[in-house]
């Protein structure tokens, strides 16, 4: 499944959405969801084996650099590519 997270840290529902993930799933952080990359917070909720990525434009627009995260930063084009492979969504 592809889990789309758009709200930032401390949003209770986003935490719970991420906990639905299982190995092989992808969590895509968009908008303020990119804040979950800070201090690797996302990994506290995403089980091992879950792919994590964030929209690059949303991350950079919030004042961060590519080097501020070890997770993959993706373009909108790559987001569609993910959905071409895994069509079930939680949004």
């Amino acid at each position: 499944m592809v889990i789309i997270v758009k709200y930032g840290l401390y949003h209770e529902i986003e935490k719970r959405k991420m906990e639905f993930a299982e190995p092989g799933d992808t969590i895509v952080l968009i908008q303020n969801g990119v804040f979950w990359l800070l201090n690797n917070e996302v990994r506290k909720f995403a089980p091992e084996g879950v792919n994590v990525c964030a929209l690059k434009d949303d991350f950079l627009a919030r004042g961060y650099k590519e080097s501020d995260t070890s997770e993959k930063l993706i373009s909108y084009d790559e987001f569609i590519e993910i959905l071409e492979k895994d069509r079930k969504t939680i949004g």
């Binding site: 758009k6 929209l55 434009d57 569609i80 590519e81 071409e84 069509r87 949004g91």
Partner: peptide
């Protein structure tokens, strides 16, 4: 592939419609 994007938040106050249009543009190009 057929893709539907649903937006509920108002434009300008939130980024949602901008995000949706960016995604739509990328999907159309593909």
């Amino acid at each position: 592939m057929k893709i539907t994007i649903q937006v509920m938040k108002p434009a300008y106050t939130y980024e949602d419609l901008d995000t949706a249009l960016h995604i739509a543009e990328a999907a159309l190009k593909r």
